[in-house]
């Protein structure tokens, strides 16, 4: 048992990570649905990782579902998230080094990620991002952020409003004031 606990902590080793992913744990959505997920994959979520580590042993982990109470974690969103972590669990660990961070932000999404995140149902998209944020899955939040930004980029205000179904709550004067303040940047818009 002690060995297993050690394994849970030390996940640098690729083999160990692969082996651990064979262990299935249960995640429970805020709507009550219970879904299975590989341990290594699930631990991409810092929230789950902390929970698992505080529980300590595999035995406990595999029997009791981990409850994700945030309302953004709907059944549909959780299914999406499990799909994502199961695909990405063996990614090389991300170095949050300053230089890399910069490059990564400018990097294009992979083909798989693009397909994954490009869902028609906007409510689901936002749920996935919010849930990923709640579960502290940095990589997935990033995918969502990049996707939204790629949609926003190059669109006019009105187009952004239409896309995100936002009502303009500015008065004409207010909007004008902001526009004036930033006039220099729109010179050729």
């Amino acid at each position: 048992m002690a060995d297993n606990a050690d394994h849970i902590d030390g996940d640098d080793n690729e083999d160990v990570r692969a082996q651990q992913n064979l262990i299935k744990i249960k995640l429970k959505s805020s709507e009550g649905g219970i879904y299975e997920c590989g341990l290594t994959a699930a631990k991409m979520s810092d929230l789950v990782k902390n929970m698992v580590e505080s529980l300590g042993t595999d035995a406990v982990v595999t029997t009791e579902p981990i409850i994700l109470g945030n309302e953004a974690v709907t059944d549909a969103a959780l299914k999406k998230i499990i799909e994502w972590v199961e695909f990405h669990w063996d990614d090389p660990p991300v170095d949050h080094d300053f230089e890399d961070e910069k490059d990564r932000r400018n990097e294009e999404l992979s083909h798989w990620d693009k397909q994954f995140i490009d869902v028609d149902d906007q409510a689901l998209l936002f749920d996935v991002i919010a849930a990923a944020n709640y579960m502290d899955i940095k990589g997935l939040v990033e995918v969502g952020a990049k996707h939204i930004c790629s949609k926003i980029r190059g669109k006019s205000c009105q187009e952004v409003r239409e896309m995100l179904k936002i009502t303009n709550d500015f008065t004409a004067e207010e909007e004008d004031a902001i526009h004036k303040e930033n006039a220099w940047i729109y010179a050729k818009d």
Binding site: R105, V141, E142, G144, A145, K146, I148, C149, I152, R153, G154, K155, S156, C157, V160, R161, L164, I166, T167, N168, D169, F170, E175, I178, H179, N182, I185, Y186, D189
Partner: peptide, 19 residues
């Protein structure tokens, strides 16, 4: 996070006028 880290300045300024 989304607007601050992944949007360029011009888009940020445009987004500002959305709501």
């Amino acid at each position: 996070t989304i607007f601050g880290q992944y949007l360029d300045l011009r888009s940020q300024l445009r987004v500002q006028r959305v709501c």
